[in-house]
């Protein structure tokens, strides 16, 4: 490869302390055809306040990495450390927003879903939990739907509930696994803008997985690009705040650069 923009991925914002550290993580699992290596030798750090985006085509293991950070699966080599401690089991300090709409409990109302998560995840009393839940649902624009059951909501609204639930738990690290991938283009754009606003307001640290370059630039402060089969770090891109607005020259330029470095397969993009 002749492109080599900052291949380490280890350079975080050095002013803030490291929150999460992946140290030479490889993840493989057995399939019927043998052992499949999904991620190979990936290292990076996330500093507090950062929004790191893992960007790559399908098969690059970005979701697998997120699962490992979430504690849902164990790396076969290397370590995932949070505040210096190795991650074992899932926990509410790493709330995840999944792509699938069925992440909400169908037997609880919109309010019930957020309240229950607060009761269990933050061990709050029912009253405190309800108060915080209402506040967050209002923030994501669902004030009129607190008593609705999830199955009556549109996909975008379900994701709003999941986002409200995740933020309400005030996790040290917010994990987002392509949360908008199943939404229509218009809704997706709107949700990206609103998520960005929430993140900036709360200053939450986040790890965001996506395959959309524009989405990565829109929501991230730093982008790690991965190449597939097996997933490896390919390049790092910093996203300066002024580049974040859609339609600006910087946005387009960065989009083009990422496109060229990461997504152009050698046999096609060679000319």
């Amino acid at each position: 490869m002749n492109v080599a923009p900052r291949l380490t991925g280890l350079a975080g914002d050095k002013a803030s302390p490291t929150l999460l550290e992946l140290d030479r993580v490889s993840i493989s699992y057995p399939t019927s055809d043998g052992i499949l290596t999904a991620v190979e030798d990936v290292s990076f750090r996330i500093s507090a306040g950062e929004r790191l985006v893992l960007l790559g085509p399908s098969g690059c293991g970005k979701s697998t990495l997120l699962r490992a950070v979430g504690g849902f699966l164990k790396p076969s080599a290397g370590e995932v450390r949070m505040n210096g401690r190795r991650i074992g089991a899932p926990g509410p300090d790493r709330m995840t927003v999944f792509q699938e709409f069925d992440q909400l409990l169908p037997w609880r109302t919109v309010l019930g879903n957020v309240r229950y998560a607060l009761e269990r995840g933050r061990a709050l009393s029912r009253r405190d939990a309800e108060q915080i839940a209402r506040r967050w649902l209002e923030r994501v624009g669902l004030k009129n739907f607190v008593d609705a059951f999830p199955h009556t909501l549109s996909g975008g609204m379900k994701q709003r509930v999941a986002i409200a639930r995740a933020f309400a738990l005030e996790p040290a690290l917010l994990l987002m696994d392509e949360p908008f991938a199943a939404l229509d283009a218009l809704t997706r754009r709107q949700m990206q803008d609103e998520l960005l606003r929430l993140c900036e307001e709360t200053g939450n640290t986040a790890l965001f997985v996506t395959h959309g370059i524009d989405e990565a630039i829109r929501v991230g402060t730093r982008i790690l690009a991965l190449t597939p089969h097996p997933g490896r770090l390919a390049a790092t891109f910093d996203v300066p705040p002024e580049t974040r607005a859609r339609g600006t020259a910087g946005f387009g330029e960065l989009e083009r650069r990422i496109q060229e470095t990461v997504f152009s397969a050698p046999e096609i993009g060679h000319v």
């Binding site: 979430g70 849902f72 089991a89 899932p90 926990g91 509410p92 790493r94 709330m95 995840t96 999944f98 699938e100 069925d102 992440q103 909400l104 409990l105 998560a117 269990r120 995840g121």
Partner: peptide
């Protein structure tokens, strides 16, 4: 039970 729902539950520290 969908795997996502299971993960959502475990995410809250339930076991």
């Amino acid at each position: 039970v969908p795997p996502t729902l299971r993960m959502a539950g475990r995410n809250l520290g339930l076991s």
